[in-house]
Structure formats: structure tokens, C-alpha cells
Design a binder for these strands. Structure first.
Lengths: 107, 107
DNA sequence: TTGACAGGCAACTAAAAGGTTGCATATTGG
DNA sequence: CCAATATGCAACCTTTTAGTTGCCTGTCAA
């Protein structure tokens, strides 16, 4: 699963809100996820398709309804494989910024 | 600082590569960051502007050069304020997925 | 069986994103 | 001073993205 698809999926505030909605209540139908009424159903469908492609949401049909389930694994993967690298360099980078700002103050 | 700007800045693979480059060696000039040669200088300038707007990079002019410094704080903030929420719900969501998949197998 | 309900598909539009070219500006070293 | 170097600015182009409208398909319940 490409990390790029996950980053791109998370880039949109609407999609992050959809994930938040599923986190609050998992297994919602498309209609329920549209209930906020800020968009057409088709727009939400497209956002959900992007989230599914990034493996952040898994969907299942039940009769005429489609249930959506949050999959937090890709988010965890990004935290573990990408963000962690910046944790390590955090103190060093902050020290760099600090000395730079102090040198600025001297000018 | 808006979290949305950070997410959007991280959505592009080129910008993530720029951050990685600064993580490897902090304080690089624009010219050095262009050295990979996969893009024009102007394209890199635009990406850096987006990273600066998201507060992921701080820049300082030194003579005719512009030095760029990584600021990992917004990345840390996203990990702490957004991703952590999905850590908490991780086991519950995985359990949901598991039972759903098992029910699928029964059909 | 026949509406009403839930969702899928496709074409279209508008705006934003990514990138380029060309030219201007400022700094440095000889 | 002057030429080379390092960067900035603006117009332009192309592709992608976000969203819409209109219509079609499948399912449930009276």
C-alpha cells in the first residue's frame, strides 16, 4: 500500500472529517456519512473512494446499504515509518533553529 | 498554525523529499536543494514556499544565499494531536474489521 | 408488484496544484 | 566596475482535484 496515497487522502479536510465521523461511530452507511448535509452524496462517494483506495476505509454491502469501517493501520504506519524519523531529529533541528535565531538577534 | 496547511504540505512526495533532505543536512541553500536536478529551481522555490507557509521550514538570508532549516514541530503536533486519536481507537476498529471479515467468510 | 429508498455511474465545470519559461534583482569576487 | 552567481517575480500552461447535475440500478416493504 503506497504511503503517498495515504498522505494525499489525509490532505483534504473533508476526508479527515469523514474519518473522524467513522472513529466516533464505525460502520456508518453512505447516507449517514452524508447527513452533515454540506455536500452532495456523490461528492462524499468520491471522497470515500479515495479513502478506500488508501486503505483507510473498508466498505461492505449489506442489502441496499453500504457500511463503512475505519482502518487505522495506514495512519499508524505513517506514524511509525515516517513521523518517527522526525522525532529523532527533533531536538537537533530545534537546536539549529535556536542558534540561528540567536545569531539573527545579534545582527 | 493551521493543521490543514501541514497536511497539504506533506501530501506531495517532492516536498517530503525536501524535508528528508533537510533532515539529512540542515541549513541548505536553495541551490543545494535543487541539486537533485529533477526539477527547475523555480519549482523547488514554490515547494519551499508551501513548506514555509506550513511552518515546516524556516528560511534565513545570508548574503545572496537563502538557508533553509527544518522545523519538525508541526510534524510532532500532528502526531500528538491528530494521529494519537486513531491510536486510541486502533484496537477497537481492528476488532470491528475482524468480526466483519469473519461474518463475510460465513456468507 | 410497485413505489420509495440507497447507492452507482458518467459527463461536465471550476478552481487549484505543479511545473515551465523569461526576465529582474542583489551580492560577491576579481 | 563587471561578470558570474544566487535568488525573486510574474505570466503562462497542463493536469488534477473537488464538486455538481442527471440518470440508471438494485433492494426493501406495503
Amino acid at each position: 500500500m503506497s504511503m503517498d496515497a495515504v498522505f494525499k487522502a489525509l490532505a483534504d479536510a473533508t476526508r479527515r472529517r469523514l474519518l473522524d465521523s467513522l472513529r466516533a461511530r464505525n460502520g456508518q452507511t453512505l447516507g449517514e456519512l452524508c447527513a452533515c448535509g454540506e455536500m452532495t452524496r456523490q461528492a462524499v462517494t468520491k471522497h470515500l473512494a479515495i479513502l478506500e483506495a488508501a486503505n483507510l476505509v473498508a466498505a461492505q454491502k449489506r442489502g441496499r446499504e453500504k457500511l463503512h469501517y475505519l482502518n487505522p493501520v495506514p495512519i499508524h504506519d505513517i506514524a511509525a515509518r515516517w513521523i518517527k524519523r522526525y522525532e529523532r531529529s527533533r531536538l537537533a533541528a530545534l537546536a539549529d533553529l535556536k542558534t540561528r535565531l540567536e545569531r539573527d538577534a545579534d545582527d
